[in-house]
Design a protein around this nucleic acid. Structure first.
Length: 128
RNA sequence: GAAGUAAAUCGCCUUAUCGCUGUUUCGAUUUAUCGAGAUGGAGGAAAGUCCGAACACCAUAGUGCAACAUAGUGGUUAGCAGCCACCAGCCGAGAGGUUAGGAAAAGUGCAACAGAAAGUAUGUACAGGUAAUGCUGUAGUGAAACCAGGUAAACUCUAUGUGGUGCAAUGUCAUGUAAACUAACACUUGAGGGCUGCACGCUCGAUGUUAGAGGGUAGACAGCUAAAGUGUAUUGGUAACAAUGCAUUCAGAUAAAUGAUAAGGGCUCCUUGGAGUACAAAAUUCGGCUUAUAGAUUUACUUAGAAA
């Protein structure tokens, strides 16, 4: 298996509305405040491990600028660290990362939380 | 210089590493993907969605009523409720600011305080007059007292204008099994639907046969960015603006790109190190308006009082 690069291109984004609906109705979740990960094992035609999307509630952040900023931080933290998370995984997954906090975070906070979040996820999936 | 008035402009920068997205060139092959290079990638308000248009569809947009909008005069424009000039009212010492600035002799309504009373009222004092009576005058209140006036961001009247729905419009393609849709023919003369809030009017229309064809998949492509473009100069015009010449191509994403991190530098404030660096992110496209904005710059003009 080739090592994953630090890219996050169109293919790796979760886009289909159908899939997102399925994710929220059938998916399971783990959370580490202020993050929550919803996941569902899925089959893709493309040769990738995961399709991922991020979301920030409009209720907690009224300004579009703030929402954009947080989404970019989430994406960046995911992009830089996903090669670590997916080294030993063979199943394909759909992911949705939600930001459920109410304060604007810094990048370091997001990154450490993201790491603990995916550790939790790996523990949970390997047990079952 | 200080205080102010008006107009205009800018609204953080650089480097490194790792990324996102459009276009294009080259090279691979699995023929729609990958790799490499080049190059473009948020705003002055992109915002609110308040006006005006372009564009698309619905009867090429019908008639009447209702409803809504506008309101000094002239100009400007594709158009506007915008903008410019002038006049008038009001505010300011001034530079200037500001105004829903048509009509009160068509009618209805409303009116603080004062006052007996703002109209189906006539009190008090004095005077006059009568058979008798607010019958008449004066005083008093008030902006206004059977004589009218004020108010139309009150109804109303006048003049002018307005069809509806919005790019999730709309068109094409792929997939392709219906009772939904389309066309033709036949039969029903009318339940119901569409066109605007209502009425008229127009139109489709229950069933059967044949043919086409599809619900869903918020699939793909077009619409989608070269335009009432932008910059600049000259000419005309008090100005808004117009004409002409030259130069230039400047985001097109779609659960939605335009970034993240690190280092350094600007600028502002307190003091030797910190803090702050606003408001706010395209979503079919333009022209306006309104609102939010840390801070910085330029130009023109004014200065009564106070201080020097």
């Amino acid at each position: 298996m080739k090592t994953l690069s630090k890219t996050y291109s169109k293919k790796e984004k979760l886009k289909s509305k159908k899939l997102i609906d399925a994710l929220f109705t059938h998916g399971q979740s783990v959370s580490t405040f202020p993050l929550r990960l919803v996941y569902l094992p899925t089959d893709f035609k493309e040769d990738i491990i995961a399709k991922t999307s991020v979301s920030v509630s409009k209720r907690n952040f009224k300004s579009a600028v703030d929402r954009n900023r947080i989404k970019r931080l989430l994406r960046e933290a995911y992009r830089l660290n996903k090669s670590v998370y997916f080294n030993n995984i063979t199943t394909q997954y759909a992911f949705m990362i939600l930001y459920i906090g109410k304060d604007k975070p810094s990048f370091v906070e997001v990154e450490t939380k993201m790491n603990t979040l995916f550790e939790k996820f790996l523990n949970k999936t390997s047990k079952s």
